[in-house]
Design a protein around this nucleic acid. Sequence first.
DNA 1: CGGAATTATTTGCGTACGCAACTATGTTTA
DNA 2: TAAACATAGTTGCGTACGCAAATAATTCCG
Lengths: 166, 166
Amino acid sequence: MVVDSVHWLEPDELKAWRTFVRFDSILMAKLDSDLVAKFGLSIAEYEVLVHLSEAENHELRMSLLADLCLVSRSGLTRRLERLVDQGLVEKNICPSDRRGMNAKLTDIGLARIIEAAPTHVAGVRNYFISKFSKEDLHTFTRFLAGPLADLQHKTDCGAPCDQPDD
Amino acid sequence: MVVDSVHWLEPDELKAWRTFVRFDSILMAKLDSDLVAKFGLSIAEYEVLVHLSEAENHELRMSLLADLCLVSRSGLTRRLERLVDQGLVEKNICPSDRRGMNAKLTDIGLARIIEAAPTHVAGVRNYFISKFSKEDLHTFTRFLAGPLADLQHKTDCGAPCDQPDD
DNA sequence: CGGAATTATTTGCGTACGCAACTATGTTTA
DNA sequence: TAAACATAGTTGCGTACGCAAATAATTCCG
């Protein structure tokens, strides 16, 4: 039984919306559990390692890392603490601004992400990328890029306005 | 600086992937905070009310509700407890199987979702649906439906294999 | 220069969740 | 029918997170 006095989404719209939400949710859970099972890394932790591995000198400021990961500052503090405890990352006072901290990948952290990346990348490919032709993938990206840009303007979520371009 | 010894995603693939992940993450956060700000309902709680409002007699078994919400059984127990505390839902022993519980929308719960739905629906429309032509929306759904079906086969995430069809 | 405002990060506290163990009821089987 | 098994839901416990307040360093003015 449905409540009729509100303007619900049309069936097509509802289907698009629920497909999107379910897909994301199940996919993320799967990518996470694959990494946890094989490497003891949550996808959240993995994400930190990826951003560091892409950074100049394998090193990034805490706040930038928080923005890249779409997590709060305090959330990042704790997430990084776990990685430090595992020896994958080290934290150094930023020489040019002593309020700030640089998170830096250790050799062990680098080795760990080199070990884990193929699993994660394979997951992203198998469950997502491989389902699209090259052209469809481009279409798909265009579909989302506009809405994403709009959302980033509307929210004050702390995210940088441009996504990393590589 | 990038690690070269692993087979990363191609730039186009990486862009598609990150656009998707960021879009979902920011959109969900926005929809949640809109609901919390105006109605004191998290999107997780809202989701429960929606499923109940669509159910026969506004009533569903706990486990089914958990599957629909992609949440663990214990997660649903607690989520429902919060809704019961707010008087939006009531819980009754299932007459045909006394192990089971039926969650049922109260009048207050029904009123609350009728009040909150327009805000949520407007958000889904403004941030997502309205960005697509009717045809693109259909394309988009087709893009995701296949991967979603595959994922649901591979995982044992407790989700029902068919999504609700309305 | 020196105090006020700003910025970077951490800490205290509360919330939402998953897993594994538990309770209670129902089903199967010998 | 009684014991073994299965199923529905809850509870204990640990984890990851966000918000707001606290701390520390820097910048901005007058």
